[in-house]
Amino acid sequence: MFKRLPDLAAFHPDARALAVTIDGKPFAARAGDTVAATLFAAGLADCRTTPVLGSARGPFCMMGVCFDCLVVIDGQPNQQGCMIPVGEGMRIQRQQGARAVAAAAGPADGMTPEAQP
């Protein structure tokens, strides 16, 4: 869908590559990009499924308005990918419906709700 302008490196020699993972796979992100831009740079169009019908969605507005770019960042779900700059070592996961939420919110005194009958 998107490609990087070829001559950027020449203009910005100090633009570093950041080591991140996307759904567990390593990726070299460009410092200065947002998480959503990083997903596009990695060739991904979708970033989550909806909690209502499970439909695939990707970033839509890139300016913090539509909330379609919600992803899990370092275990925290519902992060607006288009508003958060990518950082060194960041773990980015595409968000699956509402399911990711509790896992990231952490155990309640050692128990996650899913672990309960």
């Binding site: 869908m1 490609k3 990087r4 950027l8 169009a45 990707g58 839509f60």
Partner: peptide
Amino acid sequence: WTLPGVMTAGAAQILLKSAGLVPGG
């Protein structure tokens, strides 16, 4: 209009301005 691959034109412009990403397909 909710399909991945559909976005606002402004969103693509933001990708250009902020990340130097342009449509490639």
